[in-house]
Amino acid sequence: MSTPLAVDTLARLGTPSTGAPRTLLDMARQTQTMRATVAAFFPRDIFRDSAWDMMLETFVAGEEGRNLCVKQVILVSGETSTSALRRIDRLEAAGLMARRVDPADHRRVSVTLTVKGHDAMAAMLRSLFVTGDRPVRTGAAPQGFHPAYLPGLSN
């Protein structure tokens, strides 16, 4: 689950109307809302990155303690099944996502973020929402995170 950000960071971020500290889950949901807003103004095929949408949805599901099946991730991607499965393959090869067969129903496969995938998303969300020269990193997020640290995603 998300760790609330440090008090000084929250002062710069603001808090939701409830007054509760903003969590990584709040930031991920806000990012999903921003993605939907962009999609309303621009052609979907122009401003679209299915891997990003898949990672966001998988992050949110994990933070909420929900299981996410491959079919749901495919629907979130907005791509054909074949293209979305290739994208999941690449995310899995990069060590960001993992698939697991449901022991109760072997036809169902769930998708989760790996520790590396979760840490990358947490670091990215913090860097999106924290202002200043350097984002504050709490918890297990890698220090100095940069996409170049994720082999397999550069192509």
Rank of each mutant, 00 (worst) to 15 (best):
R87K: 14
V109D: 06
S83C: 08
A51E: 07
L125F: 01
G14M: 03
Q143C: 07
G132T: 05
Y149C: 00
T9R: 04
P16Q: 10
S81H: 12
A120F: 03
N67P: 10
A98H: 11
H106V: 14
N67T: 15
P43L: 08
L153K: 12
P142N: 04
V111R: 13
R35W: 00
F59H: 05
V60G: 02
D49E: 14
T15N: 07
Q30T: 14
L85R: 15
T138I: 10
H118S: 14
M97E: 06
D119C: 14
R126V: 01
W52T: 10
L75D: 14
A84P: 12
L10Y: 05
G19R: 02
Q30C: 11
A98P: 02
A104L: 09
R134S: 15
V60I: 11
T114K: 07
V76Y: 02
T15S: 11
R126W: 01
H106P: 14
E92I: 10
M34D: 06
T15P: 00
G95I: 01
F41P: 00
T112M: 12
F59D: 03
R86I: 08
H118M: 13
Q32K: 04
R134I: 15
F41L: 06
G19T: 02
T37N: 03
G62F: 02
A93F: 05
L56C: 03
A11K: 14
A141D: 13
A93P: 07
F42L: 00
V115A: 15
R44T: 04
M121K: 12
M34G: 08
D53M: 00
L96H: 05
L85G: 05
A123V: 08
